[in-house]
Each structure stands twice: as structure tokens, then as C-alpha cells.
């Protein structure tokens, strides 16, 4: 931490003595920096920080280079093509289907997960009996600790067979919209993927929202209570307005997770290279899923093409996470990195 400012904060009793104390401090700090041990240690720790920046830059540079190798030989438009044939001569591939599938599955996940996650965060901070809120938070942490491949296995072997009923029901009553029509295929579709992703991003959104709701000034809540507000009115008038930007950035962190999820999508989805209006019929694909399932058969050029699609995913998640962090950083100290 900032030791010099801390010093002036605590030693404010003799005001006239303060200026010389600061300069002495600075001199000592300056002398300290010339000690060899200090210089080596500073170089080591600053070097690690710089190394992290270098890695980020290297990821961007190398992915761009390999992507350039692939896209420069692509015979079709990389952004709008509906096929992925890297072994043709000349090769034709594009990310339209992948972009569509990634966005759609993430939106479904967000629509399901955000309200539930916010409600659980409120449950932990405001509704649960005091003895319960600790264990509940622990349960949510457990949900976060389960590896994604186990979610994938559970999704493919337990969730998919259980979706038949829901899909039939949606088809019966909402099938006329086209979005929820279902032709009785195995329910390995975008909606199932979205539901599974919702379960996976729930703990991320819950944990960050919980931290935000904890920071609501007690005074606001007590003032509302003193005016005769019910608990729900307290939440609507003082907790939600205070926490809104935090919840938005929590949701974006969850979105970043959903966009890049690989194994859960690869195990559950039955992919093809087409855009379907129905969320219930199998088909479609996402960036990460496409990389995982096409990788084994890919030639070196095919791998470059997959890297090109990975670059797009990298840029998208970078933008989403960067925006979330900007919003969080404006607010205060909390961070979702441990979530």
C-alpha cells in the first residue's frame, strides 16, 4: 500500500512537524531503492507484472498471425460464409453460424441465469435466516467449483433425456412461433445448451452481485425501513439502485464465461453448419465447440482456420470483460476474479 500517505494520515497530531517527516520518508525510500537486494526484488516483481502484459500481447500477436495465414487463403467471405471446408481447394470457411450460435446460446443463458442469480444474491444478503446464509453461499461456491467437463457429462447424459417433456410442452403451446417448434429430434439443441450454460454462470453472477449488495450503505436501508417500507420496498428503493451497475458488470462477467465455454457445449450440442430459426431442433455451433470438435481431424491449415475463429472469440470476450471491468472499476474495490 501507499505507505507515505498512510503515515501522514496517522501522524496528524503535530501539524508543523509533518512536512519534514515526509521529506525524510522520501529520502529514506530513495536510499532504500539503491540497496542491491531491493533493486533485485523490485526488478523481479515488476518483471513478473510486465511478463503478464507481454503474454497478453503475445496471445493477440500470434493468434492474429496464424489467423492471417488462414484467412488470406480463404476463398469465401470469412465473416458471412455458412460452411467450414478447410480441406477443399481452394478452402471455403466462415464464422457466420458460429457467431450466431455463440450469441444465441449465451443470450439464453443470460435470460435464465441473471434473474435467478440476482435473486439468490438477495437471498444470501437480505432474506436468508442468518444461520443459513453462510451454508447457502458455500453451496453456490461448490456449484462454481465443479469442472466444466463434469457439467458437460451431466448435461449430455442426465439433462438431455430430461428435456423431452419441456420441449414437447413448448412445441404444443408455442410451436406456432417457429422459435419453439420441435421435430422430435434428440433435444441436443441451443436451448439445452443455454440452460446448461445458465447453471454454469449462475455462481459467477451470484458471487459478484452478492459483494455489491453487501456494500449498500446500511443507512439507506435503515432510512427506508424507518419510513415504513416493507423489505421488498427497501430492496427496490435502496439496494437495487445502488447495486445496478455492479449487477450489470457481474452479468457481463457471466456472459464472458458463457461465450467461451467449450466442453459443456461440445458434449451436449449435436452440431451442423446451418442457422436454425428453432431453438429446440438440434444444430448450429459455437466458436469454442467448433474448435474442440473439429480439431482432431484438422490439417495444419485447418488448425490455422480454427485459430482464426478463436481470434474472433478472443476479441469478443476481451471487449465484454474489459467493459465489465471498466464498470466495476468505476465503482470500487470489489472484483469477481475470485468468483
Amino acid at each position: 500500500m501507499d505507505i507515505s500517505t498512510q503515515n501522514t494520515d496517522t501522524d496528524d497530531t503535530p501539524p508543523p512537524a509533518a512536512p519534514p517527516a515526509v521529506t525524510a520518508e522520501q529520502k529514506r525510500a530513495a536510499r532504500g531503492a539503491t540497496r542491491p537486494g531491493d533493486r533485485i526484488f523490485l526488478a523481479l516483481s515488476r518483471g513478473s507484472g510486465i511478463f503478464l502484459l507481454v503474454i497478453m500481447a503475445a496471445i493477440a500477436v500470434f493468434l492474429t498471425y496464424r489467423a492471417y495465414l488462414a484467412i488470406s487463403k480463404d476463398d469465401a467471405n470469412f465473416l458471412t460464409t455458412f460452411e467450414w471446408n478447410t480441406s477443399l481447394l481452394p478452402p471455403k470457411f466462415g464464422i457466420a453460424v458460429l457467431a450466431f450460435g455463440t450469441v444465441v446460446s449465451s443470450i439464453i443463458a443470460m435470460v435464465i441465469a441473471v434473474p435467478i442469480a440476482v435473486a439468490i444474491a438477495l437471498f444470501i444478503t437480505h432474506y436468508a435466516p442468518r444461520r443459513m446464509s453462510g451454508p447457502v453461499a458455500y453451496v453456490i461456491d461448490l456449484l462454481a467449483a465443479v469442472p466444466s467437463i463434469v457439467y458437460g457429462l451431466w448435461g449430455a447424459l442426465v439433462l438431455v433425456p430430461h428435456m423431452d417433456g419441456l420441449f414437447g410442452w413448448l412445441n404444443d403451446y408455442l410451436g406456432w412461433t417457429g422459435v419453439f417448434s420441435w421435430d422430435d429430434g434428440a433435444p441436443r439443441s441451443m436451448l439445452t445448451v443455454g440452460i446448461l450454460l445458465a447453471v454454469m454462470i449462475l455462481p459467477v453472477i451470484t458471487n459478484v452481485s452478492r459483494e455489491v449488495f453487501r456494500q449498500v450503505p446500511q443507512m439507506h436501508e435503515e432510512a427506508a425501513l424507518a419510513l415504513g417500507a416493507t423489505r421488498w420496498e427497501v430492496i427496490r428503493m435502496s439496494v437495487i439502485p445502488f447495486g445496478r451497475s455492479g449487477v450489470i458488470s457481474a452479468s457481463m462477467l457471466g456472459l464472458g464465461r458463457a461465450l467461451g465455454e467449450t466442453m459443456a457445449v461440445a458434449t451436449v450440442l449435436s452440431p451442423d453448419f446451418d442457422i436454425h430459426a428453432s431453438l429446440l431442433n438440434p444444430g448450429g455451433g459455437t466458436f469454442a465447440q467448433n474448435i474442440a470438435s473439429k480439431f482432431n481431424e484438422a490439417t495444419e491449415f485447418g488448425r490455422d482456420a480454427l485459430i482464426a475463429s478463436g481470434l474472433v472469440l478472443f476479441v469478443i470476450t476481451l471487449l465484454v470483460n474489459g467493459a465489465a471491468r471498466m464498470i466495476i472499476a468505476r465503482r470500487s474495490e470489489y472484483s469477481g476474479a475470485n468468483a
Binding site: M56, T262, G310, T317, G322, R325
Partner: peptide, 30 residues
């Protein structure tokens, strides 16, 4: 420097694991 390290560490937590894999893969291809 510290500010940008903080920011990029935050952003880095959000890198999809498959992208980290692709980065090393591009090194291995070269």
C-alpha cells in the same frame, strides 16, 4: 504500469481456456 497490469490481469481472468490453448498451439505450429 501498475494500472495497466491491474486492468489486464482482470481482463485475463476472462480469457476462455480454449483461447489460451490456441495461443500455445500457434507457437507449437511454428
Amino acid at each position: 504500469l501498475a494500472k495497466s497490469v491491474t486492468f489486464f490481469v482482470d481482463v485475463m481472468t476472462g480469457i476462455p481456456s480454449i483461447v489460451a490453448g490456441l495461443f500455445i498451439l500457434s507457437l507449437m505450429l511454428m
